[in-house]
């Protein structure tokens, strides 16, 4: 478990003070994949670095498994760091050393016996799918493979926490997917708590359980990925959600459907859980005297649950529309008017 309690970080640049973190309160439960998202300069990388004290908080505390790490001696800090793996955007591997040596490094530092290192590195490389690349050098490998080395290296000391610093930001979409799958496997198979920072909402949607949105050194919104994606509150959060689920209607479409002679309203219908599989729209159209025009539709998966998002134009008498809406609203179906689009 990682807890941030009122963590602040202030940098001094000449006479100027830069507040990178402005009182962060967050709790990452054991076994969770927690994502922190924000635009560049929001304080993400300062935040993740306070966990292994690569950055010391100016104020506040960071507790790992209930222990305040700022009170530790440098020896204790080094021991704590061995329990916290970290992977980086630019991998940060030793280019002068083989893949094997890179992964073995944390074990060499810990003075592990040679034959044990050999065995452990072998199984780590097998786990990340690089068993046949052990004698190569990092610059002979692709970005995705380099990140796999980084992951194997981070896991070498058997940590309970893994920090991912923009781990997929330098990778292409396909490779990103593969690395995210690997991270999820690590989380599931070894029950390792993962804290990741990213500026890509796709990463959050893909593997995170919880998400915090960081802006100007503050957490402006946090919650389960499901909550935040289906009901984002803050404008910044909405922008992030829209970056992966863009349901904005094109202007040309809006002008076309604005016929003053007709009574029509546009609604966003959100389906969750079991309701996703039901032919709700056609039922409504049949039962009530309405014409339904689906302007936008999307089904995605959030935390392993299907989630559907439709933007539908309801045409017909106002009373019929009201009756229809009452009928379809339920625990798993949310309906809200998309006001901006109405004529």
């Amino acid at each position: 478990m990682i807890q941030f309690e009122g963590v602040t970080k202030t940098y001094h640049s000449g006479k100027q003070e830069i507040h990178a973190l402005n009182g962060i309160d967050l709790t990452v439960e054991t076994g969770e994949i927690y994502g922190v998202i924000g635009f560049s300069g929001a304080g993400k990388s300062s935040l993740i670095r306070t966990v292994n004290l690569l950055e010391r908080p100016t104020n506040g505390r960071v507790l790992i498994h209930g222990k305040d790490i700022s009170t530790l001696t440098s020896k204790e800090i080094r021991d704590t760091r061995k329990d916290i793996g970290m992977i980086f955007q630019h991998f940060n591997l030793l280019n002068s050393k083989t893949v094997f040596h890179n992964v073995a490094m944390p074990l060499i530092l810990a003075k592990t016996p040679k034959n044990q290192i050999k065995e452990q590195v072998k199984s780590l490389l097998e786990f990340v799918g690089l068993a046949d690349q052990a004698e190569k050098y990092p610059d002979q490998l692709s970005g995705g493979q380099k990140q796999r080395i980084g992951i194997a290296r981070a896991l070498a000391t058997n940590p309970s926490v893994l920090l991912c610093d923009e781990a997929t930001s330098a990778l292409d979409p396909q490779t990103t997917q593969a690395i995210l799958d690997l991270l999820r496997r690590i989380n599931r198979e070894y029950n390792i708590t993962i804290l990741l920072i990213t500026h890509e909402m796709g990463v959050i949607r893909e593997i995170c359980d919880k998400v915090a949105v960081l802006e100007a050194g503050k957490v402006i919104e946090q919650g389960s990925v499901y909550e935040v994606f289906t009901n984002p509150q803050q404008p910044t959060t909405q922008r992030f959600v829209r970056s992966v689920m863009n349901d904005e209607l094109p202007e040309s479409l809006l002008t076309k459907i604005q016929d003053p002679a007709q009574n029509h309203s546009i609604y966003r219908v959100q389906f969750t859980g079991s309701s996703v599989g039901q032919p709700l729209m056609s039922q409504v159209s049949r039962e009530f005297n309405l014409d339904l025009n689906v302007l936008f539709g999307n089904i995605t998966e959030l935390q392993g649950e299907p989630y559907g998002n439709l933007i539908v134009e309801f045409s017909g008498s106002l009373s019929e529309i009201q009756r229809a809406l009452t009928a379809i609203r339920s625990d798993s179906v949310k309906v809200e008017e998309v006001k901006n689009y109405a004529s």
Partner: peptide, 22 residues
């Protein structure tokens, strides 16, 4: 690369280890 030093620190390397091994 500064990142290499950072990675070394994150692994819990001592300053001596960072100098001679990284």
């Amino acid at each position: 690369d500064k990142g290499v030093i950072e990675a070394a620190q994150a692994m819990g390397a001592t300053p001596g280890q960072i100098i001679f091994r990284f």
